[in-house]
Write a protein that binds this DNA or RNA. Structure first.
Lengths: 257, 257
DNA sequence: ATAAGTGTACTACCATGCAAGTTAACCGGG
DNA sequence: CCCGGTTAACTTGCATGGTAGTACACTTAT
């Protein structure tokens, strides 16, 4: 039993959730790829129980499809679900940013400036993950400013499906620069207390994201919803080789270690 | 091993989730009540495994608090969370009803009329559960009309915390009549294609609900957030006696049935 | 050669057993 | 009477074993 997983003081199942969720969202595990309880358990050096518990949680997050007695597969990116996620995010964030503009104190303004400044420093050298994290930080902080920190969790959970789509290819430099510019304009309006301008800037920002969603959806039709599951072994085998986690499956030949 | 649980073709764990979720939301299991994996498993005639998997899902829905090696307790009703749930619901439903008014076809109008008519028939004889179900049906259908059926799931999940609060005492007749009246005004506006009127009526309707929330929160302070968990055995014992599910715990005296 | 039948290797599901940790009651000494 | 130490009965977390069901490959009959 190795100590491959040791981050903080949560259960093993929760750590596996975080691990697999990250791999699925980042696209390392692609839609349709098969994940077996046994296999994950062996690779992580734990028993099947916490893995199974993690699978159930991922299913509830619409990231995994569990077919009883057949297998567990990374869920396809449901385009309708992506659209609904965007709808929810847009609706909530637009209202939130308007409220934030009316409630922004001096301390909030300082923090907002710091957040976007940090994001700008990440423009060149920063990794994609760090940039995304800084991106989220601003949106999340608006939720805090208007006194509703838990609302961000709902938005964030819905946003996962959007993030999966976005992670299909890395953002180019011009896109990242536009994002930071958008953020700076939004923060300017919020700090200035101009709710209408804030809502307008946020709307503009999110619409750009929506355009990207549509482009990516057309670019990667294979990962989208229509895909059937148990059939089409060829497609699954192709998907499996993307991540090393599902690289080789055991066969009758190499049963013993 | 009895066949106490047999509804449809899902896993045992999922049925336990539905069962316990219902008991918690309806207030049969009150905040602070202890639920042990062993006890539930025995009462349902299943092993601890599916019960445990159900507990984890309920934890993710903020309905259960699992303290490792200590116990699992029905979560208190977090007032901040209730407020955030209301905020989300209000924001989403107001936008949705405006869109529904613009998109309402003749077929939708007929179904809306049918839904409120049915709710009115339930005004006198109907059970509380049936009335609530009919209530939800209208709100859910608005989500369908504007082509975003999945958004209702998010609203509904958030609404659980509000429902817990509401179920603390049954609605009196005048409240139910006011609700149906509200619904009829909303439907009138939507069917008439008047988005502004629909938004106004929905806002009015939801504000009433919010007033009720505040009243109930003051009425039942014991179920609210501040409650500590492992301490105050007296409060827990009191809570336990509410539902027969947790009526008597085994002690050293009555081990055998 | 094609189609139906059979076996085998997988899958997720659930039952059970053990371990680590917490709590509360009990008991003896101050 | 009050306080500290011990023990016993709980709790959840994790490991493991057995079972029903599925799918694929092989065999056999047509």
């Amino acid at each position: 039993m190795a100590g491959q997983i040791d981050l903080d003081r949560t259960t093993v199942a929760d750590e596996i959730v975080a691990l697999l969720r990250d791999r699925i969202v980042r696209g390392e595990l692609t839609p349709g790829a098969q994940l077996s309880e046994n296999e994950i358990a062996q690779q992580l050096g734990v028993s099947r129980t916490p893995v199974r518990e993690a699978f159930i949680q991922l299913r509830e997050q619409s990231l995994l499809r569990i077919l009883p007695q057949r297998g567990s597969f990374v869920a396809p990116i449901n385009l309708g679900q992506v659209e609904d996620s965007y709808f929810l995010r847009e609706t909530m964030e637009i209202r939130i940013v308007g409220l934030a503009a009316k409630n922004c104190k001096a301390k909030n303004a300082d923090r907002l400036r710091a957040i976007v400044n940090r994001q700008r420093t990440l423009l060149d050298g920063g990794s994609d993950a760090a940039f995304v994290k800084a991106d989220d930080a601003m949106h999340r902080y608006f939720s805090e400013i208007c006194g509703r920190p838990r609302v961000w969790k709902v938005i964030s959970d819905a946003k996962v499906q959007i993030d999966r789509l976005r992670c299909l290819n890395a953002q180019d430099q011009s896109t990242r620069e536009r994002i930071v510019g958008d953020h700076e304009r939004i923060v300017d309006a919020v700090v200035g207390g101009d709710a209408d301008a804030a809502v307008g800037a946020m709307t503009h920002h999110l619409r750009h994201i929506h355009k990207n969603i549509e482009r990516l959806a057309q670019q990667f039709p294979g990962y989208m919803d229509g895909q059937k599951f148990p059939s089409s072994r060829a497609a699954e085998a192709r998907a499996q080789r993307v991540g090393d986690m599902t690289a080789r499956r055991r066969t009758a030949d190499n049963n013993q270690p």
